[in-house]
Amino acid sequence: MSETLFKLEGSAAPPIANGEIIFDAPWQSRVFGMAQALCQSGHYHWDEFRAYLIEDIRHWEQQHSVESLDYPYFDLFLESLTRLLNDKSILAQSDIQARSQAFSDRPHGHDHGQDDSHDHDDRHSH
């Protein structure tokens, strides 16, 4: 298993505050890991993914104030990965939508018996 890690710099760099990359939710590290793992196994070149990400970021910036504090980097990252998978015929967007719909129709708390009261929304200003 290759341990090559791919860098995102310049406008495609992930949010870093005070020296740390910011993951606000587990899915963000998951999508980050998936994008890298698919590249490691040769499904696309990192530059292809980076180009999609840069395009999505540029598009977002054209529609919003760049000074916005809630820059949704990982939302865009997920969007870029979805588009790339579709365009490369790896996963059809319609399949992703259907599976997402099936997952969101699940009863809440279906797969664990933990306390559901805790707050996972750790968003905060660093």
Binding site: V31, F74, D75, L78, S100, A102, S104
Partner: peptide
């Protein structure tokens, strides 16, 4: 986003 990530 979490659901879509899990779906993918």
């Amino acid at each position: 986003q979490s659901i879509r990530t899990e779906a993918i």
